[in-house]
Amino acid sequence: MPRDDVSQAPDAALLALYAAGEPAAARELTARLVPRALGYAARLLADRAEAEDVVQEAMLRLWRAAPGWRAGEAQVSTWLYRVVTNLATDRLRARGRRGPVGTADAPEVADGAAGAEAGLIEADRMAALDAALAALPERQRQAVVLRHLEGLANPEIAVVMDIGIEAVESLTARGKRALAAALAGQRGALGYGEGA
């Protein structure tokens, strides 16, 4: 199959091609889905090595599911988010509710003077956001990341998390409030507030 056709095909079409034995479809799906799944898993787990393991396992389940995949039943990306969510949840529970291992290792927010340059302030803000997300309760973190960082719509998040849409709205609202509270003490250091 020509390279252009593969790169422009929807995920479900690529999965059907993969099941039909087309190697180019395997390469394109890997290139397309792994970075997305890894970004999501890394935010849930705050641990790069664990996130990579989760992504490899989730992709393995996708390859195995491909021959029986029924077009139109589920979006490939939604299905993958759901598997990654479940695998990450298992990992977090296996940690014995110690919380993400990366929380304590999150970069310290620099003081106001060191963060004077725009690039440093941006890096500080991202580090502070990651740390605050990692401190959220598990389900709130999943909902906030899916809604505000992965850009999914509430009905899709409901499918991923296997809950109702109202529950999604409640989780994202509570998650945002908790983030605001967690970041409250760092507004000055992050370049917000008076004179910022």
Partner: peptide, 13 residues
């Protein structure tokens, strides 16, 4: 990671 995922894909294809 990309190599591991692709190897799984081709092994199960």
């Amino acid at each position: 990671l990309m190599a591991r995922v692709l190897a799984d894909a081709l092994a199960h294809q």
